[in-house]
Amino acid sequence: MQRVTVAVSAEPNLMKGANHVHVLLSKAENFDTYYDPGWQDSDGNLYCVSSGLWSDLQIEGVTDPTIFSEVIYELMQIYPDIDMAAVAVAQDAFRWGGKAETSKITAIIGDDPFSALSEMGLRPLEESVED
């Protein structure tokens, strides 16, 4: 198992796709992992993030759902709302490493999620200060 930190650009289609991939990979039971942006890049673009332990099969499967072809039928019985079109959108936007970008899902493998987020160029969303 390896720690994977993921940043999803806070675009509704990407968040939806990332949520469906997360369920497909058995990383979540609900479609709500990515819903509340809490991170931003230097231009103020918003991102949702997650970090957790992934198996080698999950790491391979994030960009290739055919790896799970034997269990997709079973998963669709358990989670009939998995939207494979949304999964395809997320897979097209997915990449390993680099700076986070709008219209992208970026992931980094490493033990320290805060270092990974920093490497992606992200910082916590600044809360507004009320006078």
Rank of each mutant, 00 (worst) to 15 (best):
E60G: 14
K104G: 00
E74K: 13
K27N: 13
G98V: 08
S55Y: 05
T66N: 14
P37C: 09
E60Y: 14
E101H: 07
A7E: 02
C48W: 03
D43C: 09
V71S: 13
E11P: 01
A90R: 04
N19S: 09
H22Y: 14
K99F: 11
L14K: 00
T102Q: 12
I78N: 10
G98L: 08
I105G: 00
I59P: 02
A7I: 02
E60T: 11
A86L: 06
N30V: 11
V89Y: 02
V89A: 06
L75M: 13
E11A: 10
I67Q: 12
R95I: 14
V71M: 11
H20C: 08
Y34C: 01
I105D: 03
V8Q: 03
V89K: 04
Y73R: 12
S9G: 09
E74R: 12
D92N: 15
A88R: 12
S55V: 07
G110W: 07
Y34V: 01
A100N: 04
D36M: 14
F68W: 13
G17I: 07
D111W: 09
H22P: 01
M84F: 15
D83Q: 06
D83F: 00
T33F: 06
K27P: 02
E101I: 05
V62T: 04
A86N: 03
L57A: 13
S42L: 04
S69W: 05
S26I: 06
L24D: 03
S50N: 11
H20Y: 07
S42C: 04
A18T: 10
A90P: 04
G44F: 03
F94E: 02
V71D: 11
P80K: 05
A90S: 10
G97D: 15
L14R: 01
G97Y: 14
K99Y: 11
T106G: 03
H22R: 09
I59V: 15
K99P: 03
M15L: 15
V21W: 00
A18C: 05
K99E: 13
I105N: 01
I109K: 12
D64W: 08
D56Y: 07
L46F: 06
Y47K: 01
A28P: 01
D56P: 06
G38D: 13
L14V: 08
E74W: 12
G38Y: 06
S51M: 08
Q77G: 10
S51L: 08
P80E: 11
I105K: 01
E29T: 13
Y79Q: 05
